[in-house]
Amino acid sequence: MGGKEGAWGYLAQAVICVVNSFVSEEWEYVQIEPDTENDKVDIAWYYIKQEPKVVQVKTSKNNFTMPSIRKWLESLIDDYSEANCYELILKLGHVMRKQNIFRTA
């Protein structure tokens, strides 16, 4: 992954983190890219009375396949087995515009 793609991924993580932080008011603090053993957790919300919620964000201009999705989710669970909730957020980019089938001369 190049610099442009990496920057897009970090931007997506930041936006998702901010937006989802407004949805729940029960978290104590949140971390982007927390230090985990296998580095699969992109965002973690920590709570006072429960285990954390961990999220991995995937962005791609290509379609996601079920085997890849399953592998990413299993890797996320293996990386942070103490979480109470796991989320895999898939973001497609560069959706093709509908082509104009009518041409004008």
Rank of each mutant, 00 (worst) to 15 (best):
M1R: 13
M1A: 12
M1L: 12
G3L: 13
K4I: 13
K4G: 15
E5M: 08
E5W: 06
E5T: 14
A7H: 01
A7W: 03
L11Q: 00
L11A: 00
L11S: 05
A14S: 11
V15L: 14
I16N: 10
V18Y: 08
V19A: 14
V19L: 13
S21L: 02
F22E: 04
V23C: 06
S24G: 09
E26R: 14
E26A: 14
W27Y: 15
E28C: 01
E28L: 02
Y29G: 02
Y29T: 03
Q31W: 00
E33P: 03
E33A: 02
E33K: 04
E33Y: 00
P34T: 03
D35A: 11
D35F: 10
E37A: 15
E37N: 15
N38H: 11
N38A: 10
N38E: 05
D39V: 07
D39K: 12
D39S: 13
K40A: 07
V41D: 02
D42I: 00
D42N: 03
I43P: 07
I43Q: 07
I43R: 08
W45P: 13
Y46K: 07
Y47E: 02
Y47Q: 01
I48N: 15
K49S: 07
K49Y: 05
K49M: 04
Q50A: 11
Q50P: 02
P52A: 06
V54Q: 00
V55E: 02
V57Y: 04
K58D: 04
T59G: 05
S60L: 03
S60E: 04
S60Y: 01
N62M: 09
N63C: 11
T65Y: 10
P67F: 12
S68L: 10
I69C: 04
K71Y: 15
E74T: 13
E74C: 12
E74W: 12
S75A: 08
D78A: 08
D78G: 10
D79Q: 05
Y80G: 01
S81R: 03
E82H: 06
E82T: 09
A83D: 00
Y86G: 04
Y86F: 04
Y86T: 03
Y86Q: 01
E87A: 11
L88R: 03
I89R: 14
I89E: 09
L90M: 10
L90P: 09
L90H: 06
L90G: 07
K91Q: 06
L92R: 15
L92G: 14
G93I: 14
M96L: 10
R97A: 15
K98W: 03
N100Y: 07
I101R: 06
I101S: 09
F102R: 15
T104W: 11
A105N: 15
